[in-house]
Amino acid sequence: MRRVVFLLVPGVHLLDLAGPAQVFFGANDLGLPYELSYVAEVPDVPSAQGTSLRADTELPELTPDDLVLVPGWRAPRLKGTGPLGAAALDWLRAHPGTVASVCAGADALGRAGLLDGRRCTTHHDLQDELADRYPAATVVRDVLYVVDGRVVTSAGIASGIDLALHLVATRHGPAAAARIARTMVVYARRNGGDQQASALLRHRSHVDDTVHRLQDLVEARFVERLTLADLARAAGCSERTVTRLFTRATGITPLRYQQLLRVERAEHLIGHGATVEGAARAVGFEDGRMLRRLRAR
């Protein structure tokens, strides 16, 4: 049996904790034994979402086979947040096995000296400050998680699920991780190098309802031959108006948006073993030539 010890700090984000915990809990159902435990400097740890969590206050002795994971906490900034005393940081530093973090939890690893000379990541809102606080570390920006030896760091909130699935896949194989992801109704197990913000999110920060409806249509049918005339009929306006509204709201044309969705999905398929040709046809391209050109762009 392998232990997974979660080190909790006041203000912990529930999903930072619950996502990875559910992955390892699900592994038990597959006959992959994991013992989950929760430690903190206080017995009742308030979460950012308002509920309190019970934790042991005695830091356990660890073996190289154990995993210590620090979930993130509410942190508009890192400085002055996530209080951890010297004993907890010394315990982290002395652990001979794998240490992982989600979101702001990377700051705890930094204070323990575990990021020095290593590659790491965190939530995109905290990347600059993490780099400033730990200049001996190399912060890899806008990725889901980074593995550098025994130190594994991930981006914000839901990326902890991706991190935990990766650790299961590394130890037990990708099929086991895929079964857990299916049980959790996770749409797809993402790779560490995937971007934190998908194309869907990057171009949705506007308030134009018409364009949001058009984006819904493109996203539902991005593998099809969707013409500007199709979008115009759906919006009840001219093709010229569609292009003007879409470009003003998102900064790109409808065609470019469809291409981004296709490329992003193709990248995911390639990362999971598909050939460029196979991925290109799966997302609606006739062959791999256009996909190669768009990837190079």
Rank of each mutant, 00 (worst) to 15 (best):
L30P: 07
A94F: 03
A181P: 10
P76F: 02
R221Y: 08
I252F: 07
V211N: 12
R190S: 02
L228E: 03
L53D: 02
R118S: 08
E239G: 15
L84R: 14
F24T: 14
A249V: 07
I161V: 05
A112S: 11
A169W: 02
W73V: 10
V5R: 11
V143W: 04
A235N: 01
L92H: 11
T121P: 10
L214F: 06
R179I: 01
P135N: 10
T243G: 09
A234E: 08
A176E: 01
Q258C: 05
D132W: 03
R256L: 09
A112V: 13
V186R: 12
D148C: 03
T121Y: 10
P96Q: 04
V276H: 15
A177D: 11
S205Q: 14
T241Q: 15
T241G: 05
I161P: 02
P46W: 00
V102D: 01
G156R: 08
K79L: 08
A177E: 14
V139T: 06
V143F: 06
T241K: 06
L30S: 00
Y34F: 15
Q196S: 02
R189K: 12
P254V: 08
L228M: 00
V147D: 15
P135G: 14
R289I: 13
N28K: 11
R262L: 12
L255A: 05
R289D: 15
P174L: 09
L59T: 07
P96W: 12
G50V: 05
L59M: 00
A104C: 03
H95Q: 10
T275Y: 04
V99N: 06
D90C: 04
S198I: 11
A131I: 01
P60H: 05
L245D: 13
L67A: 07
S101F: 06
V211G: 01
R54P: 13
E219A: 12
T122A: 07
P135I: 15
T63E: 12
R256F: 06
S159H: 06
A169E: 12
L245E: 13
G80F: 05
D56I: 00
L228K: 00
L144R: 15
L163V: 12
G173S: 11
D142E: 11
G278K: 07
A21Q: 09
A280W: 02
T253L: 04
K79T: 13
T241S: 14
T227H: 04
G192R: 09
A137M: 00
